[in-house]
């Protein structure tokens, strides 16, 4: 089933995929065992003339076994996941000194990208605003200041394994590092009105040389 996952092109995407696979195999094994048992019971213990069911009220030992086993598995999974979650979403664990800082703002039904320009300050004259086009270099840390001007949107790049809701009047920090040049779609993943379907931006991941050329073209001095 997991071959349907889109290609991963971010540094942390592998964490998501690995956990996805671990859970997939655990649940697959549990599913096969439970269904196998169920089907065996259905065949083996189907009603036959003259045969009476056994009177069994329960088993405390078994209850303890499956309670403990389930608890261990789910706690193990949770323990395994904390560091990956923090790496992706906790601002105090983000890699510092990003090469690119961009503000992405959701607006019915577009993504507005604002680059702070060479002074790295938003709200100054050298800011650059682009509609639905995000340009970043490959293999570089990118920080995004995510916000919205109207309703809740959700910034989703399937290939980056990244999704974060954008809230009006609030700035949420997001980071990623793309590992492969290319053009990726940025759909909106949270219902935002009649134009929700088709609200679509593009993430353009350039080679370092191409990105430098793009920067030079925008800010020539």
């Amino acid at each position: 089933m997991l071959q349907w996952l889109p290609e991963n092109v971010s540094t942390f995407g592998q964490s998501v995929d690995t956990l996805f696979y671990i859970i997939y195999y655990i649940t697959l094994v549990v599913f096969i065992l439970v269904m196998g048992t169920l089907i065996t019971f259905l065949i083996k213990y189907r009603h036959r003339e003259g045969q009476k069911a056994s009177y069994i009220e329960g088993s405390t030992t078994l209850e303890i076994v499956w309670t403990a086993a389930t608890t261990v598995i789910v706690f193990g999974l949770a323990m395994l996941s904390y560091p990956h979650w923090n790496k992706i979403k906790s601002p105090n664990e983000f890699p510092e000194n990003p090469e690119v800082l961009v503000q992405v703002s959701g607006k019915q039904f577009n993504w507005d990208m604002t680059y702070p320009g060479p002074d790295n300050e938003f709200g100054t004259a050298d800011d650059l605003e682009l509609e639905n086009q995000l340009h970043v270099p490959v293999n570089a840390v990118v920080h995004i200041r995510l916000t919205s001007v109207d309703v809740i949107h959700s910034f989703f790049v399937p290939q980056l394994r990244l999704k974060q809701d954008a809230l009006p009047n609030r700035f949420i920090n997001v980071w990623f590092e793309a590992t492969k040049a290319g053009r990726y779609e940025i759909p909106c993943a949270e219902l935002c009105g009649f134009g929700h379907s088709g609200m679509l931006g593009y993430l353009n991941v350039h080679s370092q040389a191409d990105y430098d050329a793009w920067v030079k073209e925008r800010w020539p001095q």
């Binding site: 169920l38 259905l42 213990y45 189907r46 036959r48 309670t67």
Partner: peptide, 23 residues
């Protein structure tokens, strides 16, 4: 994640009810 525990208990108990039954 903890919700999986009582859910599993219930599922196993339904299976246990069918065990050696006359279905």
């Amino acid at each position: 994640m903890l919700i999986a525990v009582p859910s599993a208990i219930k599922t196993f108990n339904w299976l246990g009810t069918m065990f050696k039954g006359s279905i």
